[in-house]
Design a protein around this nucleic acid. Structure first.
Lengths: 321, 321
DNA sequence: CTGAAAGCGCTTACAG
DNA sequence: CTGAAAGCGCTTACAG
């Protein structure tokens, strides 16, 4: 692979001149510049970003670290984040697993976005990240952290879902899922605040997967005091719940209504188009990119961001039967 | 951020000794080594991978370049590839878009895996990749290429699907999708080879998305000469087709059978658990990792790999009605 | 066992 | 406009 010294030799100039020409400096005579560019092109010169970054500290590289690529919401975010970052002339590199933070840091990317789920899987993850001292933030946390972050007001999202169901006449509302305490607590709180009936049976723990949602509802002991509406903890659980409900012969929403968490567009293609609540994905992406930019360029000015709930009406909620 | 010179100063040794200690060289006195390690730990030393790679040419970094992260099969592959690569002590970096190849090359990763779809979106992609001269291969091509690759015998996969349907008594078989010529042609070929009836109406072009599959079947003019079984071009189309079929009142598989392409495990959770054909994902992953390893370590010995069809029986195919 | 020196491929003042 | 020099943070012979 050819480097700037080779090009310098070929062009009969010094390699510092080559560097300038390649970087579009105006201090190079046009004729010299075009000759250099031509040679570079001809030999397929590919800048060594490592060396550039090492000496200049700049790479226009940004990292996105995720824990679980299986959740479709991730694919959505990764795709849109990549596009938006590209608009801002950054390249996005994706790393899977908590160690991705260290890896990207060792590559000296200019900034790191961390998918919020990660902070749960490893108790001292936050400390590790903080000690790294690299520009970056946690995307999607429930609580105010000491490090930069985008807070999703999950509590408000759940309240919104409950309110929406109440507006449709529901008084007995169930919740499926247990992995995110904040959502479960928000649910309890909303129910009691709004003076609804309640029963421990209506709070149904489940793994945060399709199977998790499916199994608990498949095996649920329905009777006349059972909920007339459910809220699913995330998009996967909700789809599993929907399947189980239909399989058991309920009509959704005629018999039972369902609100899912996560505003994933593809949920419109669920067996019954799912009404969902959650932060707006567009907002998550655009706020992420501007926060990152601030963090990189004017670190002092980075303010935490809070994302409010958005409810997308589709077809899985109807009036209480 | 602390570097080896800082550590050297702190430890009162030369920085080359620090480098050796950090890399676990046995040529360092244990006492010296542990002192250095202690300091590194205390100050949160993070090796600059850029510098390491620049001087040693090694980074244990591998890139995976994809076009579209939205297809769930990608998430599956990315996840499993990451795990398997990790077992082999490589870190995987993911880049979205064709330009990812150049990006990763500029980062001088040791090898690059390219998701096969990419070669379709850009006609001179292959040439660009070839000129880069970096260890790597195309994962999932239809044809034998001049560069390293893993070929998926899609033709054989389609033949397998047709054979399977015939074995269940079907004689009128439709195909939904049009974006991959090889599959369409394989379908035509299989039909004629096996002496089945045929009609141009049974070859239904569709976008390679859920909506694509859904729309064409929602609007399809069914009559008594219509197919009794369909094959869907990929997992997304197939799910859309299934929905449309059910929506139109057909029972699957009692009225109409359906085979999907792509052996995606989650298709067992489709509205009707989908019988699918396609390469085994486990095999794709394991073969990918070993091919990459060969490419990096013994370039001369890298042989193209061919993946044969695997059919996963679930519940969407039944005897002809 | 330890250290001085060269060098990886670049960028960036600085001098001319 | 051009080039010589220093230096980014490391590894790796080589000498001791």
């Amino acid at each position: 692979m050819i480097n700037i010294k080779d090009i310098a030799k070929l062009a009969g100039v010094s390699y510092s001149t080559v560097s300038k020409a390649l970087n579009g400096s105006s201090l190079v005579k046009p004729a010299t510049k075009s000759k250099i560019l031509e040679i570079a092109e001809k030999y397929g010169y590919q800048k060594n970003l490592l060396a550039t970054q090492l000496v200049s500290g700049r790479s226009r590289l940004v990292g996105f670290v995720v824990d679980n690529v299986r959740n479709p919401i991730f694919a959505h975010m990764a795709n849109d984040l990549h596009l938006e970052l590209q608009n801002h002339d950054y390249h996005m590199l994706l790393a899977i697993s908590p160690d991705g933070v260290e890896l990207l840091n060792q590559l000296r990317v200019e900034g790191i976005i961390i998918w919020g789920d990660l902070i749960h899987s490893d108790p001292d993850f936050l400390k590790r990240f903080h000690d790294l001292n690299v520009p970056g933030f946690i995307l999607g946390t429930d609580e105010v952290l000491r490090i930069p972050h985008i807070l999703i007001d999950r509590k408000a999202c759940i309240h919104e879902a409950v309110r929406y169901l109440i507006a449709h006449g529901h008084r007995k509302i169930g919740f499926v899922g247990g992995s995110q305490e904040i959502k479960v607590n928000a649910f309890r709180e909303a129910i009691s605040e709004m003076g609804l009936e309640t029963s421990e049976d209506w709070l149904i723990p489940a793994d945060s997967t399709w199977e998790g949602g499916y199994r608990v509802i498949r095996d649920y002991a329905f009777h006349k005091e059972s909920p007339t509406a459910f809220i699913g903890l995330n998009n996967l659980i909700t789809k599993g719940v929907l399947r189980a409900l239909l399989e058991r012969g309920f009509s959704v929403p005629a018999d039972i209504s369902l609100v899912g968490y996560d505003n994933l567009p593809e949920l419109k293609n669920a067996e019954v188009p799912l009404t969902t609540v959650g932060p707006s994905l567009e907002e998550m992406v655009s706020k992420s990119v501007s926060l990152l930019q601030t963090l990189i360029e004017r670190p002092g000015n980075a303010l935490p961001v809070v994302l409010k709930p958005a409810l997308v009406e589709r077809a899985s909620v109807g009036p209480r039967r």
